[in-house]
Amino acid sequence: MKILISFALQSTLIMNQKHQEDLSHIRSMMERSSRFISLSGLSGVFAGLSALIGGLYVYELFKANGIEYFDENYKLYSENLVLELVLVALIILFFALTFGIFFTIRKSRKYNLPIWNTATKKMLFNLAIPLSVGGIFCLALLYHHIYVLIAPATLLFYGLALVNAEKYTFSDIKYLGFCELILGCISLFYLGYGLVFWIIGFGILHILYGLIVFKKYK
């Protein structure tokens, strides 16, 4: 009798464990198949560092061109300087993307996760909608020489893109999106200090977000 009871107990325990494993298997399959989870926190940290270095370089560039960023009330930029600023921005973007892709590939190799699947494509597509509209919007601002609105616009459209992509990757990314949006809204009322907001939004926020995510999902 005793043996029978202990056998019954044992088999329920084993069954329970099996069902528990089933549930966690289901959860992980749903997660793996619908979300892009190879994004590494380190990508954020290095993207932030590139933005920070780029921002400081731009500040020095202003100085070299005789513009004291925090002194003058309104600033006139020469065509050459604007061109140089656009070039610096593109270089920053290039480095941020390269680091992002590098760390993503590294992470997905390490955890044996597929990179180019439906979830990735969906995430990129949802990121790309606000980003490409924002890009065209900024090109139009450049074209019309309305430079003061460029920094707020990049922050706002980037924030919208992150919130939009949230469904297809770590949901933490929406908090970064909200921070960018708040910062973008504030910067709309402090035109002329775009560089400061830009360094906070793309530099410091990215580094903070990257460190938090890196710690959380390590």
């Binding site: 298997h25 289901i26 399959m29």
Partner: peptide
């Protein structure tokens, strides 16, 4: 089976 659970889980969210 584990495989069928997996197939169903993947299809539920895609």
């Amino acid at each position: 089976s584990r495989v069928r659970l997996g197939i169903m889980s993947v299809l539920m969210v895609n």
